[in-house]
Amino acid sequence: MLEFRLVQGSLLKKVMEAIKDLVTDANFECSSTGFSLQAMDSSHVALVALLLRSEGFEHYRCDRNLSMGMNLNNMSKMLKCAGNDDIITIKADDGGDIVTFMFESPSQDKISDFEMKLMDISSEQLGIPESEYQSIVRMPAAEFQRICKDLSSIGDTVIISVTKEGVKFSTRGDIGSANIVCRQNTSVDKPEEATVIEMKEPVSLTFALRYMNSFTKATPLSNSVSLSMSSDLPLVVEYKIADMGYLRFYLAPKIEDEEEQS
């Protein structure tokens, strides 16, 4: 059986809100080290990878590796019933086909049990190798969200270019064009407000803004976001989840030349 108790229940609610529009069904993988999920959107352009390490839970028990198939919209519906300060416990039995979400109010005067049916989901898992990225940009998450939102009112795609000078987001549409440059800025009061650019090589890639906007729904999870880019790899947009893990989005770039697919 498995049982996890998460004091910061709102965290799980935020994770669901961030990913439920991108993927409909997903398998949650549970092992002794943590709770994880990998799922692609239906067109296989974007991928969500979530990791919540066991250390971050107040109580974590997982006897053997298990995979739980859930419809994310349904899971989100259930988690919406939890209060923001509630403690959430997830429970499931080895042989069963349901998962239980238990919500406890902070003062312990209200306890709710929600049971959800599990699903059999045959999803393809991709092996994502650890890579060195040519450029990594870390910036305030709210700033990134604002940029994506602003640019998508002008165009459909964004070109992200990292140079020594900074990171440039540009787009072009029927009504005109837009360029936003963010320079490195570390002289701020709080470290999460900094913009840090680690560049080994300059890189410039094009992405669909539709997906970027969807990723920024994870903004409530973290004050800062990091964008990792290499010319031959998908973009990684990472939101760190304090003390527990991360929520990462991978996005395949747009390419100019027609590639041969078999």
Binding site: G96, D120, G127, A208
Partner: peptide
């Protein structure tokens, strides 16, 4: 310009965890 797919970068793997049911 055409949108690439993730499979052109990452290869599928077989998962080991057993589904609950």
């Amino acid at each position: 310009s055409s949108q690439a797919r993730l499979e052109s970068f990452f290869k599928p793997v077989v998962t080991t965890a057993t589904p609950i049911k």
